[in-house]
Every structure is written in C-alpha cells, then in structure tokens.
C-alpha cells in the first residue's frame, strides 16, 4: 500500500509557527521594555526606548528575512508533490510571515509618534 507517506518529524509544522512567534517575541520585548523603562529614571527614557525598539525590530525583521529566504530556497528544491510536508506548509508559512510582518510594522508604528512613558 503506497498511499501513506513516511512519518516525518514535526519540523514542518513547527516552522509554520516561527513567524507569529517572532511577532509575539517582538511585541513582548517592546511592551516589557516600556514597562521597565518607565520604572527607571526619567532622564533618558526616550533614548533607551528608541534603541530598544530599533534593536528589537531589527532582530525581528532579520528573523523574518532569514525565515522567508529559507522558505523560498526550499521551494526551489523541494519536489512540488511532497504535500503536506513541502509546498503546502511552505506557502502557509510565507503567508504567516506576511501577516506577522504587518503585525510587527503596526507594533512599531506608534513608537515613532508617541513618547515613552507619557500619559
């Protein structure tokens, strides 16, 4: 009986979750740093927050870029019929990366407008 595919590790499944996990990490870092910075001295809140946002967003973007690049590359090599391990998960991951990127952009957007710790 050839109908069943060999059991493969859960990697493909987990990979789908990487992009939204990056969004969540970025989100948590920004939220937590704002909370922490606001308990600290008022003097250099703005700069600390600015750097945090910059670093966190750079890291998150880099993560997404690496993920997407990997997905696109494996798309060129994987046989097109290897569902569900291959293209199906790959394309789902790409769309999730897009949504997560939007999420990250939206999280970052207010930091350009609003000062840290202001009520």
């Amino acid at each position: 009986m050839s109908a069943f595919k060999p059991v493969r590790p859960l990697g493909d499944f987990w990979r789908v979750l990487i992009a939204p996990a990056i969004w969540f990490a970025h989100f948590s870092v920004l939220y937590a740093s704002e909370a922490l910075i606001c308990t600290g001295p008022p003097a250099d809140r703005g700069t600390t927050m600015g750097w945090t946002v910059l670093l966190a967003t750079a890291a998150a973007s880099a993560g997404l870029v690496v993920l997407v690049a990997g997905l696109l590359r494996s798309g060129n090599t994987a046989p097109p019929t290897s569902d569900p391990g291959g293209s199906w998960f790959r394309r789902a991951s790409l769309l999730l990366a897009l949504l997560s990127a939007l999420g990250i952009i939206w999280t970052t957007l207010p930091t350009a407008v609003l000062p840290a710790c202001a009520f």
Partner: peptide
C-alpha cells in the same frame, strides 16, 4: 492610566487580529 505608548502596542495588535 497605563502609558500611552504601551496602550498603542495593544491597539496595533487589535488591528492585526482583524486581518485573519
């Protein structure tokens, strides 16, 4: 009475969740 910037993060996520 949470700082405005903190609130805006959640406002942003609220927008994001509208997409799905």
């Amino acid at each position: 009475g949470i700082p405005a910037l903190s609130l805006s993060f959640f406002s942003a996520a609220s927008m994001a969740v509208a997409l799905p």
